[in-house]
Amino acid sequence: MANAYAGEVAICLDGVAHVAKLTLGALAELEAATEAGSLVEMVERFESGKVSTRDVLALIVAGLRGGGWQGSAEHLRTVEIGGGPIEAARAAAELLARAFALPGEG
């Protein structure tokens, strides 16, 4: 299962648990997908509540891919995310928080 100390978050897709993690490659993919000027801008979107569903989807896709998932945003649009949109947004925020936490903080 997901290891919070390693920055991992569990996400359930169609009843199957997956590990998501924002690796450096996943963060680069995230910046491109969201057209964010920087990761700080992405964090500020979440902190200010100005995050869009596209931002949440991009974060989930990048995190899952960082965890080894081979799917795409198109695939993610057709699966059931355990907990629905609220859980997806919580997992996306948790991915961002854990990506920038020092060991033992997140």
Rank of each mutant, 00 (worst) to 15 (best):
M1P: 13
N3A: 05
A4S: 11
G7V: 05
G7F: 03
E8V: 06
V9D: 00
A10D: 11
I11S: 02
C12S: 15
D14Y: 04
V16W: 02
A17W: 13
H18W: 07
V19S: 01
L24T: 12
A26V: 07
A26E: 04
A28V: 14
E29I: 01
A32H: 13
A33R: 08
A33L: 10
A33V: 04
T34D: 07
T34E: 03
T34C: 09
E35C: 12
E35Y: 10
G37H: 08
S38F: 04
S38Y: 09
L39N: 04
E44C: 10
S48C: 09
G49K: 07
G49S: 03
G49M: 06
K50H: 15
R54F: 03
R54Q: 13
D55A: 09
D55I: 07
L59P: 00
I60M: 02
A62I: 05
G63W: 00
L64P: 05
L64E: 00
G67C: 01
A73H: 01
E74D: 14
E74V: 12
L76K: 05
L76Q: 01
R77I: 02
T78Q: 13
E80I: 06
E80V: 12
I86Y: 14
E87D: 15
A88V: 07
A93D: 06
E94C: 11
E94Q: 14
L95V: 13
L95D: 05
L96R: 05
R98S: 06
R98A: 06
A99W: 01
A101W: 07
P103E: 07
E105G: 05
E105D: 15
G106A: 12
